[in-house]
Every structure is written in C-alpha cells, then in structure tokens.
C-alpha cells in the first residue's frame, strides 16, 4: 500500500491519548507523522525541565501546559492533524465524554493505579473500544523483551510487563520511545484493518 493510500485511510480516524508524558507525547508525534486524522490528548500537567529527558517537549516550553505544548509541536510536524486537547485530570467520570467517538485509546499514564483506572473504565463503560496499554519500560537495555501482546480485540499491552520505574530504574528516552512507538504501531495495525 502506498503512503498516500495509508494517509487517506488514517485521516478518517480519531485516536485518544490518555496522558501527555513520555509515552503520550512520543506516541502522539508518531501518529501525527503517520497521518491520523484527529488526536484527542488529555493531561493536566505542565512541562518541567526534568521531562525533557524523554518527553517530546523543548526547553522554551517549560511551564506550558503539556496539552498546549504538544498541540504546538504537532502543528509544526503535520498541519493536517486535528488536535483536540483537554487540560484536566482524567477520571472515571470524564473518560467517556473526553474520548467519545475515538476509534482507539492509548493508555499513556505513568502510575499503575491510573493505568488500572483507565482500563477498567473503558472496558466497563465503552465496550468494544480498543485500549493500547503500556507496561514495563524502566531502565535501559534488553529492548528485545519489549513486545506487544494482544489480550483480545479490545486490549493490547506494550512493554516488558516486568520493569518498574524507581529511583534506581528511571524511565529513559530509548526504552520509553520504543514502547511509545510500539503503541503507535499497534494503533496503526488496528486502524489499517478497520473500515471507516
């Protein structure tokens, strides 16, 4: 399939990104470059200097809302992508409204409690909607242990499902980028099979 056919197909879809940190910012950029029609990005945080070790932001964006900074960065990459940003804390109560009409949701949180909350909410309240989860990306090396595992048509997990971030095992750009891009690729796999 030629790139233009791929873009013509992907233009019809809307992808939700829950969290705009290391996973969400890199995944959103990969999807924007590929030509997804609409990205719905939700996060409440602002860009801090420490984020630049792995997140898709720049020094002159420190202090800006991540959702706004990411929207700006995407507009510098592909102006055909529509970005809908929500500056808020994602919760079970607002997930169905924020991500309504999305074709896939990318789980891109840091804390596992938030990952669990998003998965439970989407599986219960938005049946049939695929969630692409990230789990296990800390540290460095052993990238071959990172993979995408399909649980079923509505649940995919990208990562090694083993390593957890801590003071001694920080999230670093290479492995975070591998997982974020694996999530983006999984979204493409789902959407390329889907009729619009």
């Amino acid at each position: 399939m030629k790139i233009q056919n791929i873009r013509d197909h992907l233009r019809n879809f809307r992808v939700g990104i829950a969290g705009a940190g290391g996973l969400g910012s890199n995944c959103a950029v990969a999807l924007a470059r590929t030509g997804i029609g609409t990205l719905v990005i939700a996060d409440y945080d602002v860009v801090e200097e420490g984020n630049l070790s792995r997140q898709y932001y720049f020094l002159n964006q420190i202090g800006l809302l991540k959702t706004e900074a990411l929207k700006d960065n995407i507009s510098l990459i592909n102006k055909d992508v529509r970005v809908i940003s929500h500056n808020l804390l994602i919760s079970p109560g607002n997930i169905p409204e924020i991500f309504r009409e999305c074709d896939v949701i990318v789980e891109a949180f840091d804390r596992k409690e938030m990952k669990e909350m998003l998965i439970e909410t989407v599986q219960n309240k938005m049946p049939g909607l695929p969630v692409v989860v990230a789990s296990g990306l800390a540290g460095w090396g052993n990238c071959e242990s990172i993979r995408c595992r399909k649980i079923d048509e509505t649940l995919y997990v990208c990562g090694d499902e083993t390593t957890e971030v801590s003071d001694d095992m920080p999230p670093l750009a290479p492995r975070v980028g591998v997982v974020a891009n694996l999530q983006a690729d999984t979204v493409l796999e789902i959407l390329m099979k889907k009729e619009h």
Binding site: L23, F109, S135
Partner: peptide, 10 residues
C-alpha cells in the same frame, strides 16, 4: 483467563 501486569512508568 487472561492476565496482564501493570508496572509504573511512562
């Protein structure tokens, strides 16, 4: 039975 493990990090 399908199980997936949730690890913090992102």
């Amino acid at each position: 039975v399908q199980m997936l493990y949730l690890m913090s990090g992102g």
